[in-house]
Design a protein around this nucleic acid. Structure first.
Length: 420
RNA sequence: CGGGGUGUAGCAUAGUGGUAGUGUACUCGGUUUGGGACCGAGUGGUCCGGGUUCGAUUCCCGGCUCCCCGACCA
């Protein structure tokens, strides 16, 4: 992508109404646009990051047998009335509207009920099970107070997966496999070190659910954890009973502010019973399906990554989700030879599938460098008369500022792979 | 939802009961060219409704917005 044609704009100053680090940086760097409190648009750079996070998540969900689908944003009132979750006194984040033709609809804040309802059409026998489906869906929640930039909005993208099994044994196997898959997602984003599988409230179904909590001051949760024993407990369920059950004492735990980047639930057979979703077993008896629910906040993850990986100059993207791998910066001035060479390098990268952002703009070096730092691509390659004369190219690692001077051949080797 | 703030140009800010100023961004001209360079010229603004007043961006009332603290958060 040529930066001269890239739709976005960086800015020096942060909007006065943003206090969260992630939103300040993402707006300054031109990744997102704030539409209203808790509602952000994703610009071309931002959507590339989101898509990369989604693709990593997609690969890991597919690897455990998940199949992607997409539910609807508009939801029927009746489905939620059946489980007594339509009323605002039961669920306080509903956005609701009316159909011109008559009748009420809700905007999906969760898809548990609708997906369970849909499954009645497709599951009738133990032979149809198990089923694991997931989606990336924009959730709409009428939060009383949005905060923390893109980390807690009224509109956000979530990956939610649902499992439908004949019984506990199958469910547990999938539940555990998903837990591992989640950790692989976080590992690929570079935040696994600070992400804990955390005991949290299980709601109405089980004693505990598992949250995936990542240490960051921007988080809203408080978790007590022990790295050696690999145990973490959400403050909300920290009590003597929990400690005894997990075989750990209070003084073995340290506290941290965290952001919830995932949450997985075991519904047992209760949820299916509530919505009337059953299968026939081998004897022909109707049995409620054993269900589970698994969520990862995609947009929140993007915010958490920015919170964790940035410096005073801007964002520092992990390679796995950077919008572009390489930021190619030409400092040609009016030197046509340098310009031509940079163009050639850009084309070579493109032809070889390297994701490259090419700063071909006719602006001063300082502006290019500052923008480059702010945008945060993992590698910056500078093509200028200064180094070209020596047959070298300056390669800067954004994460640590390390500068390498590589020949053209070394450059190709590093970025185009060994076979080039 | 309770409490506290806030609203002036795309963004950041100053100021005033009587022609609204600056920085940045943007446009044009010129000089520059490895860390947001300089000089000159220019475009662009008082959240909405009502009230007080000769006159309101300023004061008053209401609304809305956004932010913060709390509450909430499958």
């Amino acid at each position: 992508m040529k930066q001269s044609r890239l739709f976005t704009k960086t800015r020096k100053e942060v909007p006065a109404d943003e206090t969260s680090h992630n939103a300040q940086l993402l707006i300054r760097a031109g990744y997102v646009h704030k539409e209203m409190a808790g509602v952000y648009a994703y610009l071309p750079l931002g959507i590339r990051v989101l898509e990369k996070i989604k693709e990593i998540t997609r690969q890991e969900m597919n690897a455990v047998g998940g199949q992607e689908l997409i539910m609807t944003a508009l939801q029927r009132k009746e489905i939620w009335e059946r489980t007594n979750r339509w009323d605002d006194s039961m669920v306080d984040v509903w956005f609701k509207s009316e159909l011109k033709a008559g009748g009420e609809v809700g905007f999906g804040w969760s898809h548990e009920e609708p997906i369970g309802e849909m499954m009645k059409n497709y599951i009738s026998s133990y032979k149809d099970l198990p089923v694991y489906v997931y989606q990336f869906q924009t959730k709409l929640r009428n939060e009383l107070r949005a905060k923390s930039g893109i980390m807690r909005g009224r509109e956000f993208v979530m990956k939610d997966m649902y499992s439908f099994c004949v019984g506990e044994e199958d469910h547990t196997a999938f539940y555990n496999a998903t837990m591992d898959a989640y950790m692989r997602v976080y590992a690929r984003l570079g935040i696994a070190e600070d992400t804990f599988i955390t005991f949290a409230s299980g709601g109405a179904f089980t004693q505990f659910s598992h949250e995936f909590q990542t240490i960051t001051d921007a988080g809203e949760d408080v978790v007590y954890f022990n790295r050696e024993k690999n145990i973490a407990i959400n403050e909300e369920v920290l009590n003597d009973e929990t400690l005894t059950k997990l075989g750990i004492t209070r003084d073995e735990l340290q506290m941290a502010k965290t952001a919830e980047v995932g949450n997985i639930f075991n519904f047992g057979r209760q949820k299916a019973e509530d919505i009337g979703l059953t299968f026939k077993d081998e004897s022909g008896e109707n049995i409620p399906i054993w269900m589970g629910s698994y969520g990862i906040g995609i947009t929140r993850l993007m915010g958490v990554v920015v919170e964790k990986f940035s410096d005073d100059k801007g964002i520092v993207w992990p390679e796995s989700i950077a919008p572009y791998q390489v930021h190619l910066v030409e400092l040609s001035g009016d030197n046509e030879e340098i310009k031509d060479f940079a163009n050639g390098l850009y084309n070579t990268f493109n032809d070889n599938g390297v994701h490259v952002l090419y700063d071909d703009r006719d602006v001063r070096a300082g502006e290019k460098f500052n923008d480059s730092d702010l945008l945060g691509m993992p590698y910056r390659i500078v093509v200028s008369k200064k180094t070209k004369e020596e047959g070298k190219f300056e390669v800067v690692e954004r994460a640590n500022g390390t500068v390498h001077y590589l020949t053209e051949e070394e450059l190709h080797h590093k970025f185009l792979g060994a076979n080039s």
